[in-house]
């Protein structure tokens, strides 16, 4: 009887695990089936490097959106990564215990705020600020980058901090024993030793930024055109889908699925990169 129970529960877990994987597979196949015909028809090169997105006229070039995604994500990384890494160093190395005890849950909370709230805040606070002080429409690459920078902070901070704290104590002690100051020990031994975790946190943060939709729809202005400055509005791959999916049909709908394929591949590459960076390479260690 006991044996039977063991076997049964094993089966149940297996089926549940299998079903979640198959849902994933189903979605992937669905997107591929819906999207590939259009890519085949337009041609991969024209689809990706095409400058004009005019579904009504049957022109499907997503290059402006790719430029939008890249520029907003890059901007988010430029703003968010240094802040995030500095925060993680502060938490792991300088903050007294009571302070990091407050800090950590707050950062987790930041990760739990729905993205529409970030978008809303950006719309009524960041966008007007940019419009009034820097010019342009306010809805811009800069606004999107600022919002995304805040949104990737929890990822960058928590993963970097964990990778710093996970270092053997002997590294830091060894550095200090050589007569280094605390700060010298951090930048010449601690950070290089935690490099792979920190880089992984950045890559995962970037992955999050590329995939974010709701928040950026509200602050980017969504113009389909190559931006000329960081104060110009842009549209990203994700927002393109988010905005047009509601009314698209036929080839237009297929083109949005095709956009999804491109996104899917980019995210896969980014996550694969993160996995590769954090892979176990301890073979040479004690």
């Amino acid at each position: 009887m006991k044996d039977f129970k063991e076997k049964l529960s094993g089966r149940i877990f297996f089926v549940l695990a299998l079903s979640s994987i198959s849902v994933l597979a189903l979605i992937t196949v669905f997107i591929l089936i819906k999207g590939t015909p259009l890519i085949a028809e337009v041609g991969l090169k024209d689809f990706i490097f095409g400058m004009t997105w005019a579904p009504g006229r049957g022109e499907f070039g997503i290059f402006p959106m790719i430029a939008g995604s890249v520029s907003v994500t890059f901007g988010a990384a430029v703003i968010g990564v240094p802040i995030g890494i500095c925060c993680s160093i502060f938490l792991a190395e300088f903050a007294p215990a009571w302070l990091s005890k407050i800090f950590r849950p707050v950062i987790q909370l930041l990760a739990g705020i729905p993205s529409v709230v970030y978008g809303f805040w950006g719309m009524i606070f960041v966008v007007p600020l940019i419009r009034d002080y820097l010019g342009g429409p306010g809805l811009s690459i800069l606004a999107g980058s600022i919002i995304l920078a805040i949104m990737i902070l929890p990822t960058v901070i928590s993963i970097s901090e964990v990778s710093i704290l996970a270092l053997p104590r002997q590294y830091k002690e060894g550095a200090l024993a050589l007569g280094m100051t605390h700060w010298q020990a951090i930048y010449s031994v601690v950070l290089p030793s935690a490099k792979s975790g920190i880089v992984a946190s950045v890559v995962l943060g970037i992955g999050r930024a590329v995939g974010e939709t709701m928040a950026v729809i509200m602050v980017l202005g969504n113009a389909v055109a190559l931006p000329e400055s960081i104060l110009d509005p842009v549209r990203t791959l994700t927002t393109n889908i988010g905005i047009e999916m509601g009314y698209a049909e036929g080839a237009h709908e297929q083109a949005l699925f095709a956009t999804g394929i491109v996104l899917f591949v980019v995210i896969m590459i980014i996550n694969g990169l993160a996995q590769y960076i954090t892979r176990d390479k301890n073979k040479g260690r004690r």
Binding site: P168, Q170, Y171, E173, G174, L178, G179, S188, V189, R286
Partner: peptide, 29 residues
């Protein structure tokens, strides 16, 4: 003081960097 009083630990603790960088990291700093 620690520049005058060096310490070697129980477990060998070379830093995760090259042999050369390990030796000269002190003088470098």
């Amino acid at each position: 003081l620690r520049k005058k009083v060096g310490m070697v630990f129980q477990k060998p603790n070379p830093f995760p960097m090259s042999i050369f960088d390990n030796v000269v990291i002190g003088p470098r700093r």
